[in-house]
């Protein structure tokens, strides 16, 4: 009985999260496809590649990284899947973004939990960037 209840609750919850993902991923995927055709990426490559290269990322990945840092990991996943990056870049982005994401919303929760949001967020950025740097050297 308990298992059944858990199954149906889980199904409901899982589908709700899935729906949230769909709502975020589809528009972003279309948006990135438009950017691709508008030739935005060569410009990003030229400007940002020297800096992003520190983390083994191309300039194009900047949009994914910033979306993950400031908005949601879901959004970053939508963008990454549309960019067609290699496994190394996706893995680096995965580690960096799972360390540091949704900093604005999560700061509010951290405050409620009794932590110092500013310090924790600063450390999250520092850890994310150094993890990207180290992974680029190792992978």
């Amino acid at each position: 009985m308990v298992w059944r209840k858990g199954f149906f609750n889980g199904l409901r919850k899982g589908l709700r999260i899935y729906l949230e993902l769909v709502i975020v991923i589809v528009p972003l995927f279309v948006f990135v496809t438009f950017l691709k055709h508008l030739q935005v990426f060569p410009v990003l490559e030229a400007w940002l590649s020297p800096f992003m290269g520190l983390f083994g990322l191309s300039g194009t990945a900047t949009i994914a990284l910033l979306t993950g840092f400031f908005f949601t990991a879901y959004g970053a996943v939508g963008i990454i899947s549309a960019l067609g990056l290699g496994w190394k870049e996706i893995t680096i982005l995965a580690v960096m973004i799972t360390i540091c994401h949704e900093v604005i919303i999560e700061s509010v929760i951290l405050k409620k939990m009794g932590g110092s949001p500013l310090r924790i967020t600063a450390l999250r950025f520092a850890f994310a960037l150094s993890a990207g740097f180290v992974l680029n050297l190792v992978l």
Partner: peptide
């Protein structure tokens, strides 16, 4: 993703 969430929820409920 959905099956993983279902399993996690079953574990919680039980």
């Amino acid at each position: 993703l959905v099956p993983i969430i279902v399993v996690l929820e079953m574990l919680r409920e039980s």
